[in-house]
Each structure stands twice: as structure tokens, then as C-alpha cells.
Design a protein around this nucleic acid. Structure first.
Lengths: 184, 184
DNA sequence: GAATTCATGTAACTTGTTACATGATTTA
DNA sequence: TAAATCATGTAACAAGTTACATGAATTC
């Protein structure tokens, strides 16, 4: 897919600036999708030309202008029809650098590999903590707003994230154990 | 990273044609890295220009020629130095379409979402079976050749693949349960 | 006063996909 | 003899990254 549908979906909740989208992708959605500003603004521009979104400049007191994007009817339709058509092959295209490096593990020393896996494991543990922060954020949002619906689905994806990271941690432990007792 | 290092690493084991690389990426390595022929041949061309690989045409009886690539000294060095430098951030750049779709789950019906998650779960189950086939393949290779070393690391990555897919299946079950008892 | 965040972009480049083209060899 | 696999590419496009540029507002 492309960033496009992520943007379309977020704008379905509320109008936002490019910067807001950027913040959303790189904080609360960071564990499933991220994007650089340069890509977001470029995409937004293309989407506006195609009539999927429209922008209006909002003047603010003591602050400078914000270019706020909202969904057009057409954009909303395109998003909804995309949601109706889940792709046949749902497997994320895997392009997993860490796996490739482990696969070529014989070209570095046992100690070096173990060091890298330990580092990896620590990072995964940090990721789980970050995800828990996001989880709290989601729960707070749910209390404040009338967003119980989105909250539920957001939580589903957070749970998925946590489960998959836990699997990584378990694997790392097993791998470290195997490497430690390996000889040759 | 780029395809480049995957190619470099495979050529470190043995000389291969573009087609061989394609087969390897899309069978035994398919769960961690894949690539289309068009990309592989393009990459190979660029790598040859940069002196990382060299090609020679091998004539065969009753078959047409094969353009076989092998690592140059320079290519080998570049690969080894890449192996020495694991990136700081080892998290794969997540761009997870399935999660995004679940996240926007409120825009389709409960039944539709459940249907998609069931489909997803089945696919993951098939993936595990495929991975088990690859596992058997790896074990056979290890017996035939003197490749115990690569076999060990290959198996490490296969185990990682299986663990992570199992986590997906568990999540799917939990999600289905939550969706079934959800109301609103 | 310095650093960070807010805010919006452009340009060049890299990586990956899709569609197309060609043609021999092997297998069902 | 039809389909699949072997084998090698080109061209155009889509998606993502890096580097750069600008400057106001806010926080330390």
C-alpha cells in the first residue's frame, strides 16, 4: 500500500496539518507505520491535486498560519473502498535486515553475534516499554473523548505489537543460549 | 539496507547467476528477504560496475549460456565490513498494512473484520508449514554438504520466523475473541 | 541566550514494483 | 503440444530516504 491510505484514514477522524500527521505517524502509530515530513507533504500535495483532500489556511493569533487538510467526499469514498478490499496476501513484505545478518552469522565471531543479539534484545525490551506508554495514552484518550470505537481498534494493534516483540525477546534468549553452547 | 548485501553474502558461499540468486531469495530465504528478477539483475549490473562482483559466461552442453557472478576481493571486504557494523536501530522499519487496516477497523463491520482476521490466521498457519518445509530443506542440506556452519545460522533465522508467526496466530485468536464479544 | 519544537516545503537519490520482451529447454 | 521453468534483461513508475532550506514560537 502507500502512505496515502494512512493519511486518508487519519483525516477521516479529523482535519489535520501535515505536521499533525507527521506527529501521529511518528508517535502513536510509530509501531505500525512511520513517515518523514518530506514524504507526507509531497503525498498531501498529490492527493490534493487528485481531489482526495482539500486544504484551507487557518489563521491563528500570536501564531503563524496552519494549512489544515480535510477529506473530500471523494477521498472518503476511496478510503472506504480500500478498507473493503483487504489484499489476498496479507503477509507484510518481509525485508528483515536483522535476520539476514544473523543468517550470515558465520562471518563474524560467536562473541560478536551474541553481543549484537543482546543489544537487540535490550532494544526490544525498550520497545515494549514505549508501547506501554502508547497504551496508556490510548486509554487516556478514550476517557477524555468519545472515541471508544477507535480506542478499541488501536488497542488491538498495540496488543499485536507487544505480542510480536515478546516473541522476538524469547527468540533472542533461545538464540543466545544456543550460541553460548555452540562449538566449532 | 539494500539487496546488495544479501547478494554479496550469498556469493560469498558460491558463484551464482542472477537466476540462482532469485531462486534463493524467493525460496529458502523468502521468509526474511525477497526480490524480483528485475531488481536483482539491475543491482548486479551496478555492483559489477563498482567492482564488487565479476561475471563470466559459462558455456554448457545442450543448454544455453549462464552468466555466473562471483565476489571480487573488494566485494568480499565490503560485505565483511558491513557485517561488522550492525546498525544502531535494529528495529525493522515497520510498514505494516495489516495493522493499519485493523487500526481503522471501525470503518468496516465487525463481521467483515473478523472474516479478514480469520483469513489472516489461516495464512499464518500456512506460512508456518512452509517454514517447516524450509527447515527440512536446511537439515537435508546440512547432511549432504559440509555446511554445518551456515546450517546453524539458517536454523536460527527459521526459528525466529516460526516464533514470530506463532505470535501472530495467538494474537489473531485473542482479537477474534475480543471482537466476538464486543458490542457497540 | 540556546535548544527544541512548530511548520512547510524542495531536490536528488535509492529502493522496490509492474509491465513488457525474448526465446530456449524441460516436463506433464 | 501446452505449460512451466530456465534465463536475462529494459523502461516506467511508486514509495521511501537524505540533505537542505527557512524562519517563527516556545521552553530550558
Amino acid at each position: 500500500m502507500s502512505l496515502k491510505f494512512g493519511i486518508l484514514g487519519l483525516l477521516k477522524y479529523e482535519r489535520m496539518t501535515g505536521y499533525d500527521l507527521q506527529k501521529t505517524f511518528n508517535s502513536s502509530l510509530q509501531f505500525m507505520w512511520n513517515a518523514k515530513g518530506s514524504q507526507i507533504y509531497r503525498e498531501l500535495k498529490a492527493m490534493e491535486q487528485r481531489g482526495l483532500v482539500s486544504s484551507s489556511v487557518i489563521e491563528q493569533e500570536n501564531k503563524f498560519d496552519r494549512k489544515v487538510y480535510s477529506l473530500t467526499e471523494q477521498g472518503s469514498e476511496e478510503f472506504l473502498s480500500w478498507m473493503q478490499k483487504f489484499p489476498q496476501d496479507l503477509n507484510a513484505p518481509i525485508r528483515d535486515e536483522f535476520s539476514i545478518r544473523v543468517f550470515f552469522g558465520e562471518f563474524i565471531s560467536n562473541e560478536e553475534l551474541r553481543f549484537e543479539i543482546i543489544k537487540y534484545k535490550k532494544q526490544q525490551e525498550e520497545s515494549i516499554e514505549e508501547l506501554n506508554v502508547i497504551k496508556v495514552l490510548a486509554e487516556q484518550d478514550a476517557e477524555k473523548n468519545d472515541m471508544e470505537q477507535s480506542f478499541f481498534y488501536w488497542l488491538l494493534t498495540i496488543k499485536r505489537g507487544i505480542k510480536s516483540i515478546q516473541a522476538e525477546i524469547e527468540w533472542a534468549e533461545e538464540a543466545l543460549d544456543l550460541l553460548q553452547h555452540k562449538r566449532g
